[in-house]
Design a protein around this nucleic acid. Structure first.
Lengths: 155, 155
DNA sequence: GCTGAATAAAAATTCAAA
DNA sequence: TTTGAATTTTTATTCAGC
């Protein structure tokens, strides 16, 4: 046993990080990856963590398996958008049916994907650019409202 | 072997139904439930079906497990690129001279290339994005017609 | 190709202990 | 309560046959 006490919660946080970085196929693999991260536990413990965290072993396209966070624990699309937007938002502007969202360079496509996942009825189309997204709304009023909504998200 | 030939697809449909009716915890249980439904297979076959169908064994609240239909597939853009419009189409919408084609993320450029090859006289210009294509038509009527055409393509 | 029987591999649990 | 070792249980795969 390592001399550093490792608590369950901390270990589970590390497991989350590992799952986001590696395609973990078995619990044995997870044991090894945890060891690499300096956390020494057995398969039994990992099995219990997986139950606790409600992780699932998903059969994926290439005929393999991988452990993954369940939909229930995955952040909702709106939460993801809000979190992301907070980090990359620069400014917002409205003209007629258009909302122009200025962002930090590189974040346009990612934010557009998150916005698209909202299925917001006010949005007709989006033109994502590197550092901005031009949103075409269904009406001038819709554009105003959307701008307000987005403004509220970033505080 | 039973004298009634049971095909994979039919069996998998039955499995779906069973999963919607029972909290199936193990593959053995599923074998039994299939037997009750008149389908005689072994655990090996069920294991393969589960892999095929991408079912997952989800740890649920009460400390038990249950098999469940696949969580929303988060396919990578690269995988989707290889598919046809039918495979990547999400929705289509019209506003004035605009047609907005919503697609799965990553497929916009590929689909736009295919669309451009059509040399459709109604299309004035296209703005492909990662997950959508904004098509600007030569007239409002042209936009309506184009939308209909595309709609028909995807059934 | 699809399957079952046998087997290997992996995962869950039991039990004792800290 | 949490854990590892050992064990049981479950699941995946191999192999042969159809």
């Amino acid at each position: 046993m390592g001399d550093t006490a490792m608590h369950k919660q901390a270990r589970q946080d590390i497991i989350k990080t590992i799952l986001n970085s590696y395609a973990v196929e078995t619990q044995g693999q997870l044991v090894d990856l945890l060891a690499d991260a300096g956390v020494q536990v057995t398969q039994a413990t990992v099995s219990r963590d997986i139950k606790d965290m409600q992780l699932v072993k998903v059969p994926v396209a290439n005929g393999r398996y991988r452990y993954s966070l369940p939909p229930a624990q995955q952040a909702s699309p709106t939460e993801k958008l809000e979190r992301t937007l907070r980090g990359v938002y620069a400014s917002i502007d409205v003209l007629d049916k258009f909302v122009n969202l200025q962002l930090v360079p590189g974040s346009g496509p990612a934010v557009a994907t998150l916005l698209a996942a909202q299925t917001d009825g006010r949005i007709f189309a989006m033109i994502p650019a590197d550092a901005s997204i031009l949103i075409i709304c269904r009406s001038d009023v819709a554009a105003e409202q959307l701008a307000d909504t987005l403004q509220d998200m970033v505080g």
